[in-house]
Design a protein around this nucleic acid. Structure first.
Length: 242
DNA sequence: GCCAACGTTGGC
DNA sequence: GCCAACGTTGGC
């Protein structure tokens, strides 16, 4: 039951700065079209979870900010819109294939923590992002790795923990198995639940993550973005090397 | 169910 | 721009 995540976004598509400028500093994390990432969003990403906002396909790639989950899994509207790059005609509106969560900006990381520095840090060993061949755009982060990344970012206090406090949520670091509170004031049940139901939908409209989507909106020809070469068999080693 | 072809991600 | 390492598709 992770409480921390790393979300990737191409800054050309939707940067951390763009999130800070968004209405309510929020956005729906749409455009996820990978089942493993979707399952995390659908089943495990919860209100109040901390998010490392990572810029992929950037120069340089790295951590650009800290965010927090403010709305749990709900259908990703872009899957039903034929004009969207991430339109999925096979998705049944009565049983949507793809979901999104909503996140809110918490704090920028300036300067960014670059990927090379992360790779050099032995304390980040085991981080999914750093695994060779990893492409998972949403994945859990251990509390140890979370703290180490914040440290590299120069934080002396955890801005996410402060956000939780400010919103009346439990900030106590919990073990995987939470122990029942030693009986106290009776009715002082967890406040998190109530907070969840009060989570409001974030603004609906914004560019899609992890893709070239936003460029179209910005009037940039998609052709400029990437010419996925590879029209030929290429080498026998590269593809499907199982 | 296998696997070749093909499309995508994302670092470099 | 190159290409490794994926994930998906579809013929069989």
């Amino acid at each position: 039951m992770p409480r921390y995540w790393l979300f990737k976004s191409e800054p050309e598509c939707f940067s951390y700065e763009a999130l800070e400028r968004a209405p309510q500093r929020r956005t729906g994390w749409d455009g996820i079209r990978n089942y493993q990432a979707r399952n995390f969003l659908r089943d495990d990403v919860k209100y109040g979870d901390g998010v490392i906002y990572y810029h992929s396909n950037a120069e340089p790639p790295g951590i650009a900010g800290i965010a927090v989950v403010v709305e749990e899994s709900h259908p990703d509207p872009t899957q039903f819109d034929p004009k969207q790059d991430h339109y999925d005609p096979k998705s049944d509106p009565n049983a949507p294939t793809w979901v999104q969560v909503s996140v809110e900006a918490v704090a920028p990381v300036t300067p960014e923590v670059g990927l090379p520095a992360m790779r050099k840090n032995p304390k980040l060993e085991g981080l999914e992002l750093l695994r060779t061949g990893s492409r998972l755009s949403v994945h859990p982060v251990s509390p140890e790795h979370w703290r180490e990344m914040l440290k590299m970012a120069g934080f002396t206090e955890d801005p996410h923990a402060k956000w939780l406090e400010k919103h009346g949520l439990d900030t106590a670091a919990k073990p995987a198995v939470s122990k029942p509170p030693v009986s106290k004031s009776p009715a002082s049940k967890s406040t998190a639940k109530a907070a969840i139901s009060s989570a409001k939908p974030a603004s609906a409209k914004k560019p899609v993550k992890s893709s070239t989507k936003a460029l179209a909106k910005a009037g940039v020809s998609k052709a400029n973005v990437k010419t996925s070469g590879r029209s030929k068999p290429a080498n026998k080693k590269g593809d499907g090397g199982h």
